[in-house]
């Protein structure tokens, strides 16, 4: 079995505070992994380490088959990343922003990649408008475009639905489905249980920096009944968060 992401005792400490206790996790290729947890649980810290933005305090990890510590450039060439609050360059148009990132990703035909991403995300009408005038939802789609321009093997999404209206959430879900169908592994941080139930093939729950649950969505459904009872699962593995 090939893993898109595998971590061994990956941990991060900030001074005296432990943001992530040693995390051992394996995510298969082609999965849509939902990483659940309360605010400050350590989800963003995990994503930042897996995207090479933050050095781990301990442990190792491989992403798309490349070691995080020894071959970060190969990791970077294989991933796409959408942060929670993506803004991009306000004074630049969508195309100008995307061309910039396509070139930094060393694509041979950056213009073609940008056109393809615009078409895929159905944002051709935004192509020549400056990003500064965009709503949160529009920015999110341009942000997603920059993350998939280079057809990464693994896509990291940090709270992608945050601040989106219901239409935006639905559209994003469809896009995630299409990307996954095209073979992309997706690692998604979220605290929206309903989204996990609808989009993910496996889930992990993080509580106070510790992984307290990890299984396939199939297994969850088998154990707790239908998808809507995901809340019960969350309450059982992280009861203090659910009560808070």
């Amino acid at each position: 079995m090939t893993f898109a992401i595998s971590t061994q005792g990956l941990a991060r400490r900030y001074g005296d505070a432990m943001a992530l206790y040693p995390l051992t996790l394996e995510i298969e290729e082609g999965e849509v992994f939902g990483f659940l947890g309360h605010n400050g649980a350590g989800k963003t810290t995990t994503i930042r380490m897996l995207t090479t933005l933050l050095a781990p305090s301990a442990g190792t990890a491989r992403v798309a088959g490349h070691d995080l510590a020894t071959d970060p450039m190969a990791v970077r060439a294989s991933i796409g990343y959408l942060p929670e609050n993506v803004r991009l360059y306000d004074n630049f148009t969508t195309v100008e922003n995307l061309l910039f990132f396509a070139r930094l990703s060393r694509l041979n035909a950056p213009e073609a990649a940008v056109d393809k991403a615009l078409t895929f995300l159905k944002i051709e009408d935004l192509a020549n408008r400056r990003v500064g005038t965009f709503s949160k939802g529009m920015r999110q789609r341009v942000g997603l475009a920059q993350a998939i321009l280079h057809r990464p093997k693994v896509l990291f999404l940090d709270e992608p639905t945050s601040g989106l209206d219901p239409m935006g959430v639905r559209m994003l879900r469809d896009i995630i489905g299409d990307l996954n169908a095209a073979g992309m592994t997706i690692f998604m941080n979220t605290h929206l249980l309903s989204e996990v139930a609808k989009s993910c093939s496996s889930i992990g729950v993080l509580s106070h920096g510790r992984l307290v649950f990890h299984d396939s969505m199939e297994a969850v459904t088998a154990r707790y009944g239908d998808e809507s009872s995901l809340e019960e699962l969350y309450m059982s593995v992280a009861p203090d968060e659910a009560a808070a």
Binding site: R87, L104, S105, R106
Partner: peptide, 18 residues
């Protein structure tokens, strides 16, 4: 600062860019 306020530093740092 233009990169920092635009939030594009993480996007660049997560690309194969020395």
């Amino acid at each position: 600062e233009a990169d920092r306020t635009a939030g594009t530093l993480p996007l660049m740092a997560a690309r194969p860019l020395e």
